[in-house]
């Protein structure tokens, strides 16, 4: 129909106000508003004003919000299988590999979201998880004497750490900083950007230069909001969201380096890895893949990822 009812789009995100994420969302909203027509509007709640990511999803379910820019923490609340990518430590070697596998898997993941009542508009990244520790550590075995943070809302990370022979301590994210200060934990796996914002580098000034696992995110809207839009509104939103996603992904890649540089200025010491050491880490992680496949990640998803990776590597 040419004259659809006005649609009010209300999106939530943890990204700070006036950050690049906020700006590209506003840009996207403006483009969509023009296409959707008179009376339509978009409101973006930044800084977690509507609560954390799981709260944002809960608010989408009851209809208070109808979309959000979410990391896996929120996305897994909708569709748990989405956490597969970051539940496979050292599976990916760089962003190109992540991008390739994700592009291949997109249709099936997005179908799952659609069946649950959500439309994925675009994918983004939030960086690589690295280890921040109180003492310097290089070899996989060096971390066995250290207590490692795992998030209380993510029991499978606890399983992975146990399988590796590490000592996981399950805590809430608000406990991380005091727990590092008092020695309740010695290591925090976190993206450099998050570590900088949360000042983990103070009590944990050593970072291992190893990309443990990628943290991915996505921009989603509820199917209810999507179905209320005009076809022109839908098309424009898809295009604008795709370009917003490109900008966010490009930014996330720069952010990792910028955050590390900022922390080095504040006394962070980066522990470098030789190719031999990196190989040692990869053998170490591969040792628990049999325990991950079929238990923490569905066997077919695991095999799919492995197959796409082999495909990508053989082509290069």
């Amino acid at each position: 129909s040419a004259h659809a009812d006005p649609v009010k789009l209300r999106l939530g995100t943890l990204a700070p106000k006036n950050s690049l994420y906020h700006r590209v969302l506003l840009e996207m909203g403006d483009a969509w508003k023009k296409a959707q027509g008179d009376g339509s509007g978009i409101t973006i709640f930044t800084d977690g004003a509507q609560g954390g990511e799981t709260d944002t999803v809960k608010r989408m379910r009851i209809g208070q919000l109808n979309g959000g820019l979410l990391s896996v923490v929120g996305l897994r609340e909708i569709e748990p299988s989405v956490s597969a990518l970051q539940t496979m430590p050292l599976m990916f070697r760089n962003w190109d590999e992540v991008d390739y596998v994700r592009e291949k898997m997109r249709p099936s993941i997005e179908k799952k979201f659609y069946d649950k009542g959500y439309v994925v508009l675009s994918w983004g990244d939030a960086g690589w998880v690295r280890f921040f520790s109180r003492e310097a550590a290089t070899h996989p075995a060096d971390f066995k004497a250290m207590k490692m943070f795992t998030w209380a809302g993510e029991p499978e990370q606890m399983e992975i750490m146990k399988a590796l022979g590490y000592q996981p301590v399950s805590l809430e994210t608000s406990d991380i900083l005091p727990a590092l200060q008092t020695g309740l934990i010695d290591v925090v796996p976190a993206t450099p950007y998050y570590a900088l914002a949360a000042q983990f580098n103070g009590p944990a000034p050593h970072m291992l230069d190893l990309d443990w696992a990628p943290i991915v995110g996505a921009l989603v809207v509820t199917r209810k909001a999507w179905d209320a839009m005009s076809p022109a509104g839908q098309n424009t939103l898809r295009e604008a969201a795709a370009s917003a996603g490109d900008k966010m992904r490009a930014n996330a890649r720069i952010e990792v380096d910028e955050a590390v540089a900022a922390m080095i200025k504040r006394g962070l010491k980066v522990t470098p890895l030789t190719p031999e050491l990196e190989a040692e880490w990869r053998r170490f992680a591969a040792g628990i893949y049999p325990q991950i496949r079929g238990k923490l990640v569905p066997a077919d998803t695991f095999d799919e990822v492995s197959r796409f990776l082999a495909e990508y590597r053989s082509r290069k």
């Binding site: 709260d55 608010r59 009851i62 209809g63 208070q64 209380a152 809430e172 608000s174 406990d175």
Partner: peptide, 19 residues
């Protein structure tokens, strides 16, 4: 015109706050 379920959701959000 917002869902009233938002109020119990807020109550829930408060009570399950880790602190």
């Amino acid at each position: 015109g917002l869902p009233l379920a938002a109020i119990p959701l807020n109550h829930y959000q408060l009570t399950v706050n880790p602190s």
